[in-house]
Each structure stands twice: as C-alpha cells, then as structure tokens.
Design a protein around this nucleic acid. Structure first.
Lengths: 122, 122
DNA sequence: TGGTATAGTACCTATTAGGAAACCATTGAT
DNA sequence: ATCAATGGTTTCCTAATAGGTACTATACCA
C-alpha cells in the first residue's frame, strides 16, 4: 500500500494542517471519482451501467478510476464467472463514509447553479 | 463567463443528478484549489506566503490556479501599487461558502490517516 | 456461420502539469 | 551610473496524464 508507506514516512515528520486534505484529494481527487461515488450511492452498478451514467467518460478512464478506487478500498469489485462477463461495483464502508461529503458538494453546486442562472437572466 | 454560457445551454436540457457535482468540480477540482482555499480560510495571504505554505506547487501553477479562482469569483485579488509589488489574496463570500466543505474534507482525511496509521502498526 | 453482448486492453495522440529561467519596474547600495 | 534585490508573472520545454479508436475473449443465439 503506497499510502501506508507514505504515512509511515510522515509519522517521523511534522504533520501539517494540509495533510488530511491532501490525503483526501489523493483518494478522490480528479474529475471522475466523485461522480462515480455519487452514482454508486445506495446502489450496486455494473460496469456498463456506470458507463451509461457517465457518457463522457471513456472506457479506459472508467476502468482506471475504478481500479484505483478499489486499490484504495473505496469500492468493491465483484466478478461473476459467466459469459458475457458481469462485474458489479459497490461502495465499501470507507466509500460510504464519503457520501455525506458528496451530498454537501451537490447542495453547494445546486445553489451555485441557481445563482449563475439568476445572473444569466438579468 | 464560460460557466454562464454552459448553463444557458443546459437550461434547455434535462438537468441530470450529476450536474451540481460536476459544476462544483469545475470550480474546485484539481490538485491545488482546495488547498489554496484551505490556506486562505480566515486570513488574507500574499502570493509569496501561499507559495511558502504550498512548497510543492510551482509559481506558474500557483499563478494559474489563483487566476482561475479569481475568474470564478472564489477569491479576491488586491494589488498594492508599490515596489516591490505586493498582491494579497482573500476568499470572497462565495469562496467562504466552501469552507465547511473543506472542513469536512479535513475531518475525513484526519480519520482516514489515523486508520491507515493503525493498520500500519499491526 | 456469423452476429451480439460485456468488460475490458493496447496503442497512439492531445491536453495539462511541472521545472528552470527570464522579465519587469523600481528601490537602494556601490 | 551601474548593479543586485524584490515579488509576481511569463515563457519555453519536457514529463505526466487524459482521451479516442480499435481490438480481444467467450458463450449464446439466429
């Protein structure tokens, strides 16, 4: 676990104010991960369902992001031994713990979009 | 305003569940913006102070990120007409409204780092 | 026999981030 | 008069990351 190694190093240094934020960003930073978590909230989804929900992501990116999130323990990947293949993704407990965070993000974004809309109508 | 144009377009479409999250990510997505906001919480900082607080950022990136955030109305940039130059950055009201969000991020990250640390000690 | 469906890979290009150094205007020291 | 220092920004080049398109494996179905 890369992250654990980094922490082991960090233990011997001063922990800065920014470290927790940086740690969080390492797990869910980037364009796609928050959206993936948001879609997996309260439901399990197959690869193709996620792809449909995020039309602008490429398959490569989706695979890559899912793998990283699995590696970091945010999501669970369940492969069904059948043809055509079936793979289901769901949030782990750690992943679920990020949902409140996503909710705030969504609330903030909703308000922001309303503001922008009002200004556009002036 | 690029964002406004996008919204004007979006008004005529169905607004999807993910839109507010995407909108938020457009403003504070990326590696540096959350950290910059976090540092500007409750205080005004000069360019060079920010640079010192974020040793890993390059000057170019810092300038770029600050400009984008100013453009999106998250921060205020005050230039003092003096030599050597002095530029102070502070959060706008909109920027301040993101602070609770950063606080949650920091709390989550703190907990996460503790967990990782405990596992590392096993 | 050929087509479909699913979850990917492989390969190549485009975009973005990062690093080093130059720039600019002005002050103060030599 | 010249020259270094200052602080924010810019330029140029390279490295890293994202994106697009095509391809694979395998069983089932027509």
């Amino acid at each position: 676990m890369e992250t654990i190694k980094k922490w082991r190093k960090a233990q011997h240094m001063n922990i800065k104010k920014t470290d927790p934020v940086e740690a969080t960003l390492e797990l869910i930073g980037g364009k796609w991960k928050p959206l993936i978590i948001w879609h997996l909230t309260d439901k399990t989804m197959r690869f193709s369902e996620l792809k449909k929900s995020l039309p602008k992501i490429t398959q490569k990116m989706l695979t890559q992001q899912l793998r990283e999130m699995e590696y970091h323990g945010l999501i669970h990947r369940k492969v069904y031994a059948q043809v055509p293949p079936k793979v289901e993704y769901s949030l782990t407990e750690l992943g679920e713990s990020l949902v409140p965070f996503l909710e705030i993000m969504c609330q903030w974004g909703t308000k922001y979009l309303k503001n922008v809309k009002n200004k556009a109508e002036d």
